[in-house]
Design a protein around this nucleic acid. Structure first.
Lengths: 246, 246
DNA sequence: CGAGGCCTTGACCCAGCTCAAATAAGGTGG
DNA sequence: CCACCTTATTTGAGCTGGGTCAAGGCCTCG
């Protein structure tokens, strides 16, 4: 009964609790999660922190508990393409599970974040051992692929204001009551790049969206009085109707 | 020893041989493949055949042995977005493995094709039983996701002529000798949509690419004298260098 | 040989990009 | 709490790649 142990196991217990809440881990038993927690680390990361760089080997899977992280690549011309932006409930680095040692993109914290990392090999082992878990991972990857398909379609079919609308609607997902208040989670420049447009275009498109659908923007806060109006404006160009993904 | 049996088992043997060649099935033993072959069907499909429609439940996985198949969605406006175009060695319908009963897009033969179909449940069972196979499926899906990531980047970073160049380069992949002769596999309209552009734009962009890199086009045949020149022109905008995917 | 479907070309338009400059918004040290 | 510096955001002006519409040309197949 070393004096250090109570503290340590308390911390591990905290991690284990967070892991239990991850949808991906639903098929796992507590003792498995405890095993993960043993090797996992929970860390508070400051805005600007680089978790890993592109073209770099990486051994961990990252679970975002809070804050925002962007995944990005840099083109030869020097400008960045934002692949995705993740927040609470998302994870990344799973690409490594499929034998890609070098990450195809870098990861940077864009809003102070709490992140749990787990060594990749633990998950890989569990996938081999527990086919239910393997299936869960496969389903997750499949969903991501479908989201990418949609994204590609959106980029050619939607106008800039509509893309912003679509982005805002995804943030609404939970809120149902009509006056919705959102906080733009991070730097508007990052949002712009996430949506594949320049910051100037983003600014103008947001103004247009404001006129068109009557939403209000104050700094990083967005208020939507009439969600239906926003849906009508945004989703008219799309091939699937509103709550466009499961 | 019914008279029918020799014929049937010969046909099944043919199918089994095709299945053996699928990279996805590498981790499977012959007896497993034999089991698949028992329920599988090999069919010659004519150009224009619709294999399934979007928003429709589907129970099969499709392996393309020859010819070309396009996967597509239709937008409300009525124009089609080509999600992907597949040929020998590719397969589709795996989305169904992750519990998506309704297909998110339709499949149509765009060039006479031979296709093997396997009931989805057989693969699903095997995934649960054989974790090596499950891992192979996961890796495949992961690769597809990464390809989508690249595609999204390409759409914003590359010009129309560059996108065509990129497309041609992928078709070169095997040929190494410098004078390369390619046959555009299908309808130029389909290629255009696959690349996210209008047929008119495709035509103009192809002319530009011809001037720029000295390749020659005669009907559906493309001759490339200087692959390096094409690479230089095409890949200059990209974030990864030439043979851009494994 | 004719019809319909591709493919190409021309003319014009417009969303979004680029360059440049003016403002706003934070964050920091005093 | 304020002045100052740095980093976002907005706005203006002009450009351009690609879309749209419309008209031929060409090739294929019946």
């Amino acid at each position: 009964m070393n004096a250090k142990f109570p503290a340590m196991s308390a911390s591990k217990a905290v991690i284990q609790n967070h892991l239990r809440l991850q949808p991906l881990f639903k098929p796992l038993r507590d003792e498995t999660l405890a095993g993960f927690a043993e090797y996992a680390a929970l860390k508070a990361e400051k805005k600007g922190a680089v978790l890993f760089s592109a073209e770099t080997p990486n051994e961990k899977i990252y679970f975002v508990l809070s804050g925002w992280v962007k995944l990005f690549r840099e083109t030869l011309a020097g400008d960045e393409a934002v692949v995705d932006v993740l927040t609470a409930g998302n994870f990344f680095g799973e690409i490594g599970l499929s034998g890609h040692d070098e990450m195809p993109y870098g990861a940077e914290v864009v809003e102070d974040a709490e992140i749990i990392t787990i060594p990749r090999f633990l998950l890989a082992e569990e996938i081999m051992r527990n086919s239910l878990f393997g299936m869960a991972v496969l389903q997750n990857m499949t969903r991501q692929r479908l989201q990418r398909d949609m994204e590609i379609e959106h980029r050619t079919v939607q106008s800039a204001p509509q893309r912003i609308g679509c982005f805002l609607l995804k943030l609404c997902r939970d809120n149902t009551g009509d006056p919705v208040v959102l906080h733009l989670p991070y730097d508007k420049t990052v949002v712009a790049h996430r949506l594949g447009m320049q910051p100037e275009t983003f600014s103008r498109a947001l103004s247009k969206l404001r006129e068109e659908t009557g939403l209000r923007v104050r700094g990083a806060t967005v208020e939507i009085d009439n969600v239906k109006k926003l849906v009508d404006y945004t989703c008219s160009a799309c091939s699937s109707s509103f709550p466009c993904e499961d």
